[in-house]
Amino acid sequence: MLYLLAPLSDYRLVYSPLVEAEAQRHQKPGHVPVAVLRERWDWTLVPDSDEDAALVDTDPKDLPVLASAIQSGAGFLVTGNVRHFGAHDLAAHGLSAVHPGLFLAHHCSAESYLEVLAAISAGRLREPRNPRSIHESEIAVQLPALFDARRNLFDSAAADLVHEPPGIVFRGPRCVHCALLREPDVDGLCDSCRHRPIRLTPDRTLS
């Protein structure tokens, strides 16, 4: 979803060889290797970090991931394991770790979301095969914050469709909505974004 929504949204994705190797290790047999998809779709690879960044409270096995994100100048580290990344390390480098569902809830429009669901369902040979069922099953389970933000698009979507959400979905000094360093709360929002009507439809700039 992150990659499918990127051309329609306001963010750019990069990842490192180490992340790619990890992703490939978790792929099901028969799936196209991530490296092949990267080359086919021109996804951007940034180098693994060649320096030992002074990191103190991040899970040791995720240190290279954070170090590479810092080195590449990323503003957000989008991960299903936000809790692995330490608050001190993130604050020291102006980076926020955020669950992909929460990130997408703030960085894709309803229009783009519907467009991508329709595009996925058009190519699907297995269930779920229509936008609504993809939204209510796969998105609800894997990206609960995105499901929640867009539940009004398919008005039958009930609260109990959201499975157990991840315990920690955000950590860091950069607001998930405005991307500014404004000491956001645990839901990722800074005071300024919280107290104004939030448009979940970021403008896309063309130049």
Binding site: M1, Y3, L4, P7, L8, Q27, K28, H31, V32, L37, R40, W41, E115, V116, A119, I120, A122, G123, R124, L125, L206
Partner: peptide, 24 residues
């Protein structure tokens, strides 16, 4: 032309979705 940029943007997403649909 901007209109062509937008046409291609959406075509690109559909193309990528078709390619990823099996794995996603």
């Amino acid at each position: 032309p901007l209109s062509e940029v937008e046409r291609f943007r959406h075509a690109y997403v559909r193309e990528m979705a078709a390619d990823l649909a099996i794995d996603f």
